[in-house]
Design a protein around this nucleic acid. Structure first.
Lengths: 176, 176
DNA sequence: TGAGATATGTCAACAAGGCTGACATAAAAT
DNA sequence: ATTTTATGTCAGCCTTGTTGACATATCTCA
């Protein structure tokens, strides 16, 4: 089949002829790939978590506390987008089992500042490395620019209002 | 701070000095970006699903049935990685409410072939377009090569044994 | 043809991890 | 002094996953 008339060629596959709206063809490939990738990505830690009597909810909490020492309850709730009751159930267990420590805030004594214990950091690191292995394998075959492209893409999937917040959280408060 | 001695510069950030293994620094950025991206991505359909009395589990089933008319129960179970009991609960509701139809297989009459009804296709498409909007927004700013890079990355995050299966499913049985 | 394997359906019970609503306390803010 | 804020907790419910047991129809193969 011959190519389209050059003048009508478009980069974006959805607005073929001169930007006419074509009822936007769904991006099935990216929708489904994200599903499958996430499905396998989050399942890696399951076995190890199970050994401690933890689940994926515990993992998420431990991860962000380990990454952000001194995180408050409110900040954690905002990251996870769950209710404080849901959070408290798993957080309580993580504290009881000695993976997370809760200290009273110094500036504001109403707040609870959360810290991973050494044991907590160990587990968090172990799980992060497990997931990193999968990421590195995926990045191994890719061009060097791929990581940047992927990061930018994932970042832009996030709700615009939250993007700056996530940027600070992920890349550190210092970096642009 | 001056650059490292050129001979010791490496592309891969993890094996700094001459490929020595540095206990692999976790890829926190990609780990967390995937979490946040997925968190927001899957939450888009929630409101609409709620109007029909459906949840995310219903969405996943409807999506894949709509995409793969004639899908069998076994194939669906393999995609979703849940038990038949879990599947049946939501599938039953989708059938009762007229979004999916189950026909007896012709070649093998033990099988059930699943099809979305017109109503089912409508809903699936509506939700896919919603998620596509988010994807297009993320792709809009990116270079044209980004989509390819992202697709390849997500595909390689998937378990290697499943990758060919997913490829066929996502890109169609014909394409390479 | 008859035995066994396979694809599916179903019942019951339970677990993880979400949710809402109500209420309590301590500390900060006004 | 009052109100607001940050957190904790109780109780109950929902969704969506799990296991185990068992039933049925159909296919496969000796």
């Amino acid at each position: 089949m011959p190519d389209a008339i050059p003048a009508f060629k478009r980069h974006s596959p959805d607005q073929s002829r001169n930007g006419e709206i074509l009822a936007e063809m769904p991006a099935y490939d990216l929708i489904e790939l994200l599903f499958f990738a996430y499905r396998d990505f989050v399942s890696d830690p399951d076995r190890i978590l199970g050994e401690y009597g933890f689940g994926r909810a515990h993992h998420r909490v431990l991860h962000f506390v380990s990454r952000q020492p001194g995180l408050t309850i409110a900040e954690l709730l905002d990251i996870l987008r769950i209710t404080k009751q849901s959070l408290n159930r798993v957080l309580k267990e993580l504290i009881e089992k000695g993976f997370i420590e809760s200290r009273t805030g110094t500036a504001d004594r109403r707040q609870r500042l959360l810290f991973a214990t050494p044991q907590g950091h160990d587990l968090a690191l172990k799980l992060a490395k497990l997931q990193t292995r999968r990421i590195m394998r995926a990045l191994a075959d890719a061009e060097p620019a791929a990581k940047e492209a992927v990061s930018r893409y994932l970042l832009c999937l996030i709700d615009p209002d939250d993007r700056e917040h996530v940027k600070r959280l992920v890349f550190g408060p210092g970096k642009t």
